[in-house]
Design a protein around this nucleic acid. Structure first.
Lengths: 336, 336
DNA sequence: ATGAAAGCGCTAACAG
DNA sequence: CTGTTAGCGCTTTCAT
């Protein structure tokens, strides 16, 4: 039950018989230290099991040296973002960075709040999936050269580091695939209309239809909020139509799962009675009934490269913005 | 492109024509402030868009007042923990706490590292799912009255706040259900053997078998590492046996999904040729082929209550430890 | 090669 | 009711 006192450089200095600045020097691997002093201090640190207080360090250190980055994702329930998170976390970890994560669940006020939180925590930089293309806070940060890299979604009217996939083309391919399977009544269930990717994917859907001379039917386009629930409900609306679609193109992971729930609850046969291809692949897509045809995005890779880019930018805040487009893939399985 | 200077209480004080302590007072909602001073300072804060630096605040504040908690989860890829995280985050957010999250991917060294990181970040308390029942660092923290609440897994030889489900009983029920369906060759695919829940669930499995006079067959018990991959491989081993099991009880989410992948790749009919019930339910269990019978744990609730308990403990570090057992439920669907 | 001292931005006595 | 001052634990000149 003994109270573990909180140790400071003073304790180490005392134990090693040196000054606190010397302790600080060995912590930070300064070069001009005599071997004896070095080992004295090192063993004092080890004996005491001393760990420098990161809060104090961060307060003292300046921009770009604090070894902390922020990561702001829209929805941690979405497996795609989980992969992204893992991708950045792994690289950060490997480079000695800690990551402060915030999950804003598509709520704009929460997004802002987290943004403020991270700034107020003095992060060296930020990885963000902006909820809209013109998020003013984020835009002004990049304008002010604050290190930011965007993932999954970019910013309008300003260049920033960015890692994405080609949403438009991927959606186009997915829909064209459906058309090639003979479908003409193809519906699109998208996420929040304010989210850039929603629009891109929708455009891909639209253009694929147009290219093949299929008339756009607005009632076949449903935009919800990117969550499971919304996929479930919107799919139901679609399936309730007198002239209902024969195929569904679902705009993300969670929407797909929600739509699937509706389809199954009505015991519709996939793909006979209703075909479906989803944006975002999942580790268990193959275990679904039937195995799901899906657009696979390299989430882990996205996160990884984003972290890499951020570290570069932290080192050089003025370098020109880099836009990295990673490639996705349509995985054709049995649902289409 | 203008450089946004970093603001401090000084700037606000200057603008409002008061001293920094007054500014600090209004930030912290002190009571003895004249109305005029208050409004002067408030508008200065608003005009400048000043946000106090949390790093400095935390350095200065003492234990229990820093409004930051740490959350350490084993595997963010596991949907169960995602729910827990959300549960914690939502309550923390509502109470004005920030949460520093670490995901250690079952790697003990990473777990330790994150633990150190959070302490060194001066968190007020910690919510942890300890990788083993006798994690020495965690044990010694609770011994030293550091506010900690464990989720999903407890500690041996010491009382601590704890939120769990009755893993033993739930596993027992699941297996008994399989027995009632006529199965005698029931296999168990568990996670890391060092994880407390793995043992509890295994014991439930064992006892259900014994109760019904079914002999334990050690070769039907496979312990892996709690991940998708391991479920896939272990299920394959099981299905390769000459005298293979007719039913699988899978120890968690990811293992279930992995096992399902193997089953489907061999085109085995569920539940005819192989039945399966999994520990952990998922939002899309119903969309699997066939809908999965699963033990449902209230992840969100677990996180929520854990956060609640932590806030209590932070306020009163000496109070007696509380153990909260939430109830789970066997959801019988079509895979068994 | 090492120590003394200033200061990061903030809060909390202590005065008045 | 408000201002002055002393640190929180650390890094970093500036001396020596």
């Amino acid at each position: 039950m003994k109270k573990t006192k909180i140790l400071s450089v003073h304790d180490v200095a005392f134990k090693a018989g040196v000054s606190i600045s010397t302790v600080s020097r060995v912590i930070n691997g300064a070069k001009n230290i005599s071997p004896e002093t070095l080992s004295k201090v090192q063993s004092a640190i080890k004996d005491l099991n001393f760990k420098p207080n990161r809060v104090a360090q961060r307060l003292r250190l300046k921009k770009g040296q604090r070894k902390l980055i922020g990561l702001l994702v829209p929805d941690i329930q979405n497996p795609f973002y989980v992969d992204v998170v893992k991708g950045v976390e792994d690289l950060a970890y490997a480079q000695g960075y800690a990551v402060f994560m915030g999950n804003f669940g598509q709520a704009v006020d929460k997004e802002d709040l987290y943004l403020d939180l991270m700034l107020s925590e003095s992060v060296d930089g930020l990885i963000v999936a902006p909820s809209t293309e013109k998020h003013s806070k984020i835009v002004s940060l990049v304008k002010n050269q604050f290190p930011i890299v965007c993932v999954d979604r970019g910013l309008a009217e300003i260049e920033s580091d960015l890692v994405i996939v080609n949403n438009y083309q991927l959606a186009f391919d997915a829909v064209e695939h459906l058309i090639n399977r003979g479908h003409k009544q193809i519906a699109y269930i998208g996420g929040l209309s304010s989210i850039p990717t929603t629009a891109r994917r929708k455009q891909g859907y639209l253009d694929a239809l147009t290219k093949h001379g299929i008339e756009i039917n607005e009632s076949l386009i449903k935009l919800g909020d990117s969550k499971h629930e919304s996929g479930r409900i919107l799919a139901a609306e679609l399936l309730n139509m007198k002239n209902r679609p024969t195929a569904l193109f679902t705009g993300n992971n969670l929407i797909t799962l929600g739509a699937l729930e509706t389809i199954h609850s009505r015991e519709l046969k996939i793909p006979k009675e209703i075909a479906i291809v989803g944006f975002d692949d999942m580790p268990w897509s193959i275990s679904l009934h039937p195995p799901l045809t899906a657009v696979s995005q390299p989430g882990y890779e996205i996160g990884n490269r984003a972290a890499e880019m951020l570290f570069h930018r932290i080192k050089d805040p003025m370098r020109i913005p880099v836009k990295l487009v990673l490639s996705g893939e349509l995985k054709i399985r049995k649902s289409s």
